[in-house]
Design a protein around this nucleic acid. Structure first.
Length: 264
DNA sequence: CATCATGTTATAAT
DNA sequence: CATTATAACATGAT
């Protein structure tokens, strides 16, 4: 479910635990989410540590603890973070629970496409420090986007927008929204886009990301009704901007919603 | 029972 | 070798 704004929303769910010690850990070490780290070593190390800070980067999150302990969380397709009061019911797919006084910080992920990472050491781990510039950052430039469209020239632009090495945090709904707002058909090949279209992808990626962070990212509030967002779920829904009915097709390996009237 | 889901990646194909 | 397409992952909703 989560793209960059949803990830920001979930990051904040653990804010009540900032400044507090972790008194105990519960893990489900068999969960696929632990395929990149040792769940029992993580549990041993985090017990007694204090949660200091949390950050997002695209779809990635990191929770920093006292003693140079770094907990990485990727929500995959169905992961979520919750803060529950002590004594709340345990749920079926709670795979990591950080117990604090009066509360529990829970990672729940029924599909187990998420990833938990852990690092102990002074500096940031590679999985955090080696990430590409965020799309809202100054370092995310028109030129980087233009060069990338060229390099991925044979791919449909929809697939290019989903590539996390250039567009960290962009997912299926945001990619559709970007192309719909500009009026580009998602199946167009990267190399066939004009300079104007490339610049528009750069700009619209940033405006949509910023707006989503200010709405969904704050309190799961819907983005503006004028966006494709709320209209994209059923084939045949009317385009909010023209008379055409929206279509859903598999483009770039993912179900894609687009408007045959607006996107060419 | 078959299909689909806001994600990533190992492997196959070009 | 570099890039692109496909299958697989695990579970639940429709």
């Amino acid at each position: 479910m989560p793209e960059l704004a949803e990830v920001e929303y979930y990051r904040k769910q653990w804010d009540p635990g900032l400044g507090a010690r972790v008194t105990a850990i519960r893990t489900n070490p068999k969960a696929r989410d632990f395929r990149e780290c040792d769940a029992s070593a993580l549990a041993r190390s985090l017990k007694g540590a204090t949660l200091r800070e949390s950050l997002t980067h695209g779809k990635q999150m990191v929770f920093k603890f006292s003693g140079g302990r770094w907990l990485g969380v990727h929500l995959g397709m169905a992961g979520k973070l919750e803060c529950r009061k002590t004594g709340a019911d345990r749920e079926k797919h709670d795979h990591l629970v950080l117990v604090q006084k009066g509360r529990e910080l829970v990672f729940n992920d029924y599909r187990m496409f998420g990833v938990i990472r852990f690092h102990e050491g002074k500096g940031a781990p590679d999985w955090w420090s080696d990430l590409p510039p965020e799309v809202t950052d100054k370092a995310f430039t028109k030129k980087r986007v233009a060069d990338f469209l060229e390099r991925r020239g044979k791919s449909p632009v929809k697939a290019i927008l989903l590539d996390q090495s250039m567009f960290p945090g962009i997912g299926n709904w945001m990619a559709d929204e970007i192309l719909w707002q500009i009026g580009i058909f998602p199946g167009r090949r990267g190399a066939n886009l004009t300079k104007q279209e490339s610049d528009a992808i750069w700009k619209t990626t940033r405006t949509i990301s910023r707006h989503a962070l200010k709405t969904i990212g704050v309190d799961w509030r819907d983005p503006p009704k004028s966006w494709l967002f709320k209209h994209r779920w059923r084939d045949g829904n009317a385009c909010p901007r023209c008379v055409a009915d929206l279509r859903r097709d598999e483009i770039g390996g993912r179900t894609t919603c687009w408007c045959p009237g607006c996107q060419t």
